[in-house]
Computed example of a mutant assay.
Amino acid sequence: MSEYGKLFPIPSAVPRDKSKINADTATMNDITREELNALLENHQLKADARLKEFEGRVADGLLKMDHSLQLLDKDLSGVRGLKGTIILNSVLSVIAIVGISIAVMAYGVANFDSGRDTSAALQEMKQQSFETRQLLEQVKAQQKAPHGNQ
Rank of each mutant, 00 (worst) to 15 (best):
F112Y: 05
L7M: 13
L51W: 09
T27E: 09
S93W: 09
R33V: 14
S12F: 10
A49Y: 03
K18Q: 04
L71E: 14
A103Y: 07
R16N: 09
F112P: 00
L88M: 14
L63V: 09
V104M: 11
G108N: 04
L71H: 12
R57C: 10
A96N: 09
E53N: 04
I102D: 11
N22Y: 00
A59E: 05
D24R: 02
R80V: 15
A96C: 10
E41H: 03
D48R: 09
K52C: 01
D73C: 07
L39G: 03
N29W: 11
R16C: 05
P11D: 11
K52H: 06
G99F: 04
A26K: 01
E53D: 13
R80Q: 15
K52N: 05
N111L: 01
L62C: 12
S114T: 12
L7K: 09
L76M: 13
L36A: 13
M105I: 11
G61D: 12
S90K: 06
S101W: 07
T85H: 05
D73I: 03
I10Q: 13
F54Q: 07
D113I: 08
K74P: 00
D30S: 12
R33E: 14
E55M: 04
R50Q: 09
H67M: 14
S101A: 15
I87N: 10
E55V: 02
D24A: 10
D17C: 01
R16T: 05
I21E: 03
I97W: 07
S90A: 13
I95S: 13
I10N: 14
H43V: 03
N22C: 03
M28I: 13
K74G: 07
G81L: 01
L63D: 12
S77I: 02
S12V: 13
A23K: 04
T32G: 07
F112C: 02
D30K: 08
S19R: 06
L71I: 04
G56V: 01
D73E: 12
R57W: 08
T25R: 01
E35I: 08
A23T: 08
M28S: 15
S77N: 02
N42S: 07
L72D: 12
E53T: 00
H43F: 05
E35H: 04
A106I: 01
I31E: 15
V58A: 07
I10E: 14
G81I: 00
